[in-house]
Design a protein around this nucleic acid. Structure first.
Length: 206
DNA sequence: TGATTGATGAGCT
DNA sequence: GCTCATCAATCAG
């Protein structure tokens, strides 16, 4: 457990690639939220890539607005938005003016699990962080945490490298979940062996 | 298990 | 007003 805490953040170049590449590369990495000297940690097990101007389902498809402004900037920052009653967290990928991002859909709880249970008001560990709205609730992530630099170790939200090497054959690709446009693009990625991915499964794309 | 539906709030298509 | 990158409860089988 202590070796997890010595992990370092990933460099900005890690995020300055196309979003599907970043989405796959983020699997297995550690999402860390610091609050009151406590660290909530989860291992990323499910992501989705959004392609910006070529992708009808992306928030940036309509062009720059006040809400999606952060997507048009540098990679490696959080994009937190609310949907219905809940929040979702993306990591900005690509280059400035190429508004692409990676949605973190599910993590495996690693540390401060009791606090996550309190935040979610449940004791079911498998149901704490297996969805984008759920993991934000468990981690206490809200819209005011939009635009945080996850490559800066002093940030409130950071992503750490991990000792777990996720190989390509451990990753399952499928279509994205919960969207009404561009449903069929194979842009959802998850660790096939994880029991912490979100419940609704779509047909895998081999 | 899988499908369906209602609650819910911010941003703008 | 209408649209959602959601969730939890409900019901059919």
């Amino acid at each position: 457990m202590s070796d997890l805490l010595t992990s370092s953040t990933l460099p900005r170049e890690f995020y300055s690639r196309n979003s599907p590449e970043v989405a796959k590369a983020l699997l297995g990495k550690l999402l860390v939220r610091k609050v009151n000297g406590i660290k909530l940690i989860g291992r990323i097990v499910e992501t989705e890539a959004y392609l910006g101007l070529e992708d009808e389902a992306a928030h940036s498809f309509i062009g720059e607005t006040t809400r999606n402004r952060i997507l048009f900037g540098e990679a490696g920052y959080t994009y937190v938005h609310s949907i219905h009653r809940y929040h979702c967290i993306d990591i900005v990928a690509g280059q400035p003016n190429l508004p692409v991002s990676v949605l973190i859909r599910a993590v495996e709880p690693i540390e401060s699990i009791e606090l996550m249970k309190q935040n979610r008001n449940t004791t079911d560990e498998k149901n704490l962080t297996n969805g984008p709205g759920k993991l934000c609730q468990a981690f206490g992530i809200t819209r005011i945490m939009n635009g945080i630099d996850v490559t800066d170790d002093s940030s409130e939200i950071v992503i750490y490298e991990s000792d777990l090497n996720v190989t390509d054959d451990a990753i399952i690709t499928s279509s994205r979940i919960g969207i009404s446009k561009a449903k069929d693009l194979p842009l959802r990625f998850y660790i096939g062996s994880s029991s912490y991915v979100s419940k609704s499964q779509t047909k895998p794309v081999v």
